[in-house]
C-alpha cells in the first residue's frame, strides 16, 4: 500500500507541471523556508490520501466484483448495468440537481436576514443569538420534530385550514417530499450562513453607507448598490459552504423525514448507498458510490467554477 500511496501523491504535482508559479529558489532548497510549506500541508494531505483517496480506490475496485454468491468474483461492469436499470438510482442522480437548485434560496434567505440584523432592526441582538440555535441540534432530532410539524394533521396544516388553504401531506406526496426536506434543511442551517454573512458585513465600508444615506438612498437601493458589491466575496464563500452542506449533510433529515419515499421520489445518493449496503449488496453500493460521487464532484466543482473565484486562488 505504501507504494500505491507513493505513486498517488505524485499524481497531483505531475498533473499540470509548471502551472504553479514557483519562485525559482533552487539554491535554497531544503532550507527551513523551502520545506516549511510542504511540512505544514503534509498532515492534512496524508490524512486525506490514506482515509479518503485510498478507500475510494478500494471502492472502485470493489465495484467490479459481485455480491452474495459472487462475492469477490470479478464481474466487470455488471453492477453499473444493474444501476442503470434501477429507478432509485435515476431518482438519486436527478435529485442531486434538485438539491443544488435550493442552494441559492438558502444563500438569499441568510443574506437578507443578515442584512436586516446588520441594519439593526429592532431585536437584532436577540435574532442573532436565536437563529443559530437549530445548528446546534442533531438532524435526527430536527427530522423527528418536523415529521410532526408537517404531518397531515400537524400544526402547519392546522394553520392552512385556519386560513382556508388546502391540506397538504408534505412528506407523503412525490412532488413535495424532497422540497420539504430541503426547506427544513435550510431552516436548520441558515444560522451558520448568517454568521458568516455578519462577519463579512464588518468589512463593508461605513463611509459608503453614510454616503448612501446622505444621497437619500432607499433601503433596497442601499442593499443593491452598496452592500452586495461590497460582499461579493462573502456571498461566494457562503455559496460554497451551503453547497457542501446540501451535498453532504442531508442524510439525517432525509432518513428521518421521508426515508426516500414516497416511491423513490426523495432518494439521494448517500441514502441509496446506505440502502444498498443494508440490502447486503455492498458491491452494488460501491458502484453507486463511484457514479454518484463523480456526478457530485462534477456538478459541485462546476458550480464553484460558475462562482469563479470562491476565495483567492492559491
Amino acid at each position: 500500500m505504501t507504494a500505491l500511496l507513493g505513486s498517488r501523491s505524485d499524481v497531483p504535482t505531475d498533473v499540470r507541471p509548471g502551472t504553479t508559479p514557483v519562485p525559482r529558489r533552487r539554491r535554497r532548497r531544503f532550507t527551513v523556508e523551502s520545506t516549511a510549506p510542504l511540512l505544514l500541508v503534509f498532515p492534512a494531505i496524508a490524512i486525506l490520501l490514506v482515509f479518503r483517496v485510498y478507500p475510494l480506490i478500494l471502492g472502485v475496485n470493489f465495484s467490479f466484483t459481485g455480491d452474495q454468491e459472487l462475492n469477490g468474483v470479478f464481474i466487470g461492469l455488471d453492477n453499473y448495468v444493474t444501476l442503470m436499470n434501477d429507478v432509485r438510482f435515476h431518482a438519486a442522480a436527478r435529485n442531486v440537481i434538485v438539491v443544488l437548485l435550493f442552494v441559492p434560496i438558502e444563500v438569499f434567505v441568510a443574506g437578507i436576514l443578515a442584512t436586516f440584523i446588520f441594519l439593526k432592526v429592532p431585536g437584532h441582538r436577540f435574532y442573532r443569538s436565536v437563529y443559530f440555535l437549530p445548528v446546534v441540534l442533531s438532524p435526527i432530532i430536527i427530522g423527528a420534530i418536523f415529521n410532526i410539524v408537517l404531518a397531515a394533521n400537524g400544526p402547519l396544516n392546522e394553520l392552512n385550514r385556519a386560513v382556508g388553504l388546502p391540506i397538504v401531506d408534505w412528506l407523503g406526496q412525490s412532488n413535495s417530499a424532497l422540497p420539504s426536506v430541503l426547506g427544513v434543511h435550510i431552516w436548520a442551517t441558515f444560522g451558520m450562513a448568517l454568521v458568516i454573512f455578519l462577519a463579512g458585513f464588518s468589512t463593508v465600508d461605513q463611509e459608503l453607507l453614510d454616503a448612501a444615506r446622505i444621497d437619500g438612498a432607499t433601503l433596497p437601493q442601499t442593499i443593491w448598490y452598496v452592500v452586495i458589491p461590497e460582499l461579493s466575496q462573502t456571498i461566494q464563500f457562503v455559496f460554497v459552504t451551503t453547497t457542501i452542506g446540501m451535498l453532504t449533510g442531508l442524510f439525517g433529515l432525509l432518513y428521518t423525514m421521508t426515508a426516500g419515499g414516497p416511491g423513490a421520489a426523495s432518494y439521494l445518493p448517500e441514502f441509496l448507498i446506505w440502502k444498498l449496503n443494508g440490502e447486503a449488496k455492498p458491491a452494488l453500493a460501491s458502484a453507486a458510490s463511484v457514479v454518484l460521487l463523480l456526478l457530485i464532484l462534477v456538478i459541485g466543482l462546476l458550480q464553484i467554477r460558475v462562482l469563479r473565484r470562491a476565495t483567492k486562488e492559491v
Partner: peptide, 26 residues
C-alpha cells in the same frame, strides 16, 4: 485549470484501480 486537473486526477485514479480489480474485492 482546477476542473481539468480534477478530471485528469480522477481518470488517473480509475486507470490505476481498474487493473487491480479482483484482488482487493475478494
Amino acid at each position: 485549470r482546477m476542473i481539468n486537473s480534477a478530471a485528469l486526477g480522477l481518470a488517473a485514479a480509475l486507470t490505476l484501480t481498474a487493473c487491480g480489480g479482483a484482488s482487493a474485492g475478494g
